[in-house]
């Protein structure tokens, strides 16, 4: 069973709601980062919501995904809870990673979310491995790697796809072509115009879909999933989308014009889908407004939860390094370098 059935009215409402939740989450994260409440840096998914939600809705709940530095949307699309996500952005103990990961490393392995990732191109090998694991165990599961146009230039992405196609693994490689790799336009990073043509090198299907249309991404991933579980191997999908915000919050964006942003904003994936559901009679305009307000309210609650959550105890810095107890960590914790606990005299 797909995670959300797009053929039903309920499924369509839920898909819209999840996109709205991502938009609200990232708007809030951007605001609170600007206010200095969130440490580090954040990369927002605004504009790309249809890709994450379309893909994760068409997967089954047990399927795996790997994510990117721009991972909030993938998390929400995979069903992670926004309060624990926001708490992680705040570095709180109640966060998904107990405050150790932050925005770039939110993970929930039990939910199949193998981690946002701070290294461009690092996710695809992990997805190949998760697909290998599923194949070896005979599980009816696939692994989908989200990665950006910039990652297509990374050697390890090539290696991951080659391995998955050579071994016929149930993997899906989904490029979110948002037109910029960090601060450099995609055409300055690739000689190839259509990144989906990459697939030809691996003798696997590759195609491009409208990444601003959640129905297109959904259908593409549903078909790729079917191919994967049938044992026919991986699929390479390019979702044509656009990053409305900078690479990171605070990016002064010398690499593009406001006109370009506005042109893509007119194709907003959330408004577009909402309008289609209104036209189709699935929702009224008032119901769309209510859904949006409810999403924003959930995120306000999540932010309040994060604000009121607990700072980790400094001693927690020494936890979670290993499954086993490593004597070095207990020796060094707190500053002592000596196995006897720091006595400076002897004999």
């Amino acid at each position: 069973m797909v995670t959300i059935d797009i053929e039903t009215d309920d499924g369509q409402r839920e898909i819209l709601r999840r996109m709205m939740l991502i938009r609200a989450f990232d708007n809030e994260a951007g605001d609170r980062f600007a206010d200095g409440e969130i440490p580090g840096f954040v990369h927002l998914y605004i504009g790309e919501e249809a890709v994450g939600v379309g893909a994760c809705s068409a997967l089954e709940p047990d399927d795996y995904i790997t994510s990117t530095h721009r991972g909030h949307g993938h998390c929400i699309a995979k069903g992670l809870e926004t309060d624990k996500m926001m708490a992680e952005l705040y570095g709180k103990r109640e966060g998904y990673c107990n405050g150790k990961g932050g925005s770039m490393h939110i993970a929930d392995v039990d939910a199949g979310m193998l981690g946002a990732n701070g290294i461009v191109g690092a996710g695809p090998p992990l997805a190949t491995g998760a697909a290998l694991s599923a194949a070896q165990k005979g599980e009816d599961r696939v692994a989908l790697a989200f990665f950006g146009d910039g990652a297509v230039a990374q050697g390890q992405v090539h290696e991951a796809i080659n391995l998955a196609s050579t071994w016929g693994l149930p993997a899906i490689f989904l490029v979110e072509n948002n037109k910029f790799g960090e601060g450099t336009p995609v055409e300055k990073q690739h000689n190839l115009e259509n990144l989906s043509e990459t697939a030809e090198a691996y003798d696997i299907p590759g195609f491009t879909v409208n990444g601003m249309d959640v129905t297109a991404v959904y259908e593409a991933v549903e078909a790729a999933r079917e191919r994967a579980v049938n044992g026919d191997g991986p699929t390479f999908i390019e979702a044509d989308t656009y990053r409305y915000r900078g690479h990171f919050e605070g990016d002064h964006q010398p690499y593009r014009d406001d006109d370009d942003i506005e042109a893509w904003q007119r194709r907003c994936p959330i408004d577009a889908f909402a309008n289609r559901l209104v036209d189709a009679g699935v929702l009224t305009e008032d119901e769309v407004d209510e859904l949006r307000a409810a999403a924003e309210a959930e995120i306000e609650d999540a932010a309040a939860f994060a604000e009121n959550a607990t700072d980790p105890d400094p001693s927690e810095a020494y936890e979670d390094m290993y499954d086993v107890s490593v004597p070095e960590l207990s020796t060094y914790a707190g500053g002592s370098l000596r196995a006897d606990g720091g006595s400076t005299t002897d004999q």
């Binding site: 043509e197 697939a199 299907p205 491009t208 593409a220 078909a223």
Partner: peptide, 12 residues
Amino acid sequence: NPAAGRDIRRLT
């Protein structure tokens, strides 16, 4: 047409 010939029918 630079967009022709790269749709999902490469898979389905």
